Amino acid sequence: SYYEILDVPRSASADDIKKAYRRKALQWHPDKNPDNKEFAEKKFKEVAEAYEVLSDKHKREIYDR
Rank of each mutant, 00 (worst) to 15 (best):
P30M: 06
D35Y: 10
R23E: 14
I62K: 09
V47K: 00
V53G: 03
D7Y: 03
H29R: 12
A12W: 01
V8W: 00
K32P: 03
D7N: 09
R60S: 02
K32T: 15
E49M: 14
K57L: 10
Y3S: 00
E61I: 09
A20Y: 02
Y2F: 09
Y2W: 09
D64E: 04
V8K: 02
K32D: 06
W28Y: 15
V53E: 03
R10L: 08
E38N: 09
D35E: 14
Y51W: 09
N36S: 09
H29P: 02
A40I: 05
D35M: 12
A14F: 13
A25S: 14
Y2K: 03
E41A: 14
K24R: 07
D15Y: 12
E41T: 13
E4V: 12
H29M: 10
D15A: 13
S11T: 14
I17A: 00
D31I: 07
K45P: 01
R22G: 12
S11Q: 12
K24V: 06
V53W: 05
E41G: 08
P9N: 07
N36W: 09
S1H: 07
S1P: 04
V53A: 04
A14C: 10
I62R: 10
Y51M: 05
E41V: 11
P30L: 05
Y63H: 03
Y3D: 01
A14N: 11
A12P: 03
R65E: 10
E61D: 11
Y63A: 02
D56I: 03
E38M: 10
R22I: 15
W28S: 02
A14W: 05
K57G: 09
K42S: 11
D64Y: 02
Y63G: 01
K59I: 04
F44T: 07
Y3G: 00
N33A: 05
W28N: 03
K57F: 09
D15P: 06
A25P: 00
P9E: 08
L26C: 11
A12G: 05
E38D: 11
V53K: 03
K45Y: 07
D16E: 13
D35L: 10
D16R: 07
E46G: 04
A14D: 14
D64A: 02
H58S: 13
S11H: 14
A48K: 13
E52Q: 09
A20I: 01
E4D: 14
Y51V: 03
L6I: 04
K19A: 14
D16V: 09
S13V: 05
L6F: 02
E52D: 14
S55P: 00
P34K: 13
K43M: 12
D56K: 04
S11G: 10
K37C: 06
E52Y: 09
E46H: 06
E41P: 02
D56W: 02
N36F: 08
L26D: 15
S55A: 08
E46T: 05
Y2E: 01
R60K: 12
K45R: 13
R65G: 13
S55L: 04
K32A: 15
K45L: 10
K18F: 13
K57M: 10
F44C: 07
K19R: 15
A40F: 08
Q27Y: 11
E41F: 10
Y51A: 04
A12K: 02
H58Y: 13
R10E: 06
W28H: 08
K43S: 06
D7R: 04
R23D: 14
H29T: 10
D56T: 04
E38W: 08
L26M: 11
L26Y: 09
K43G: 03
E52R: 10
L54H: 00
D56E: 04
Y51N: 03
N33Y: 14
R65P: 04
D64N: 04
Y21T: 02
Y63I: 03
D31T: 11
I17R: 00
V47G: 02
V53Y: 04
E52F: 10
R23L: 15
D31L: 13
Y21I: 02
L54W: 01
Y2S: 02
D15I: 07
R10D: 05
R10P: 11
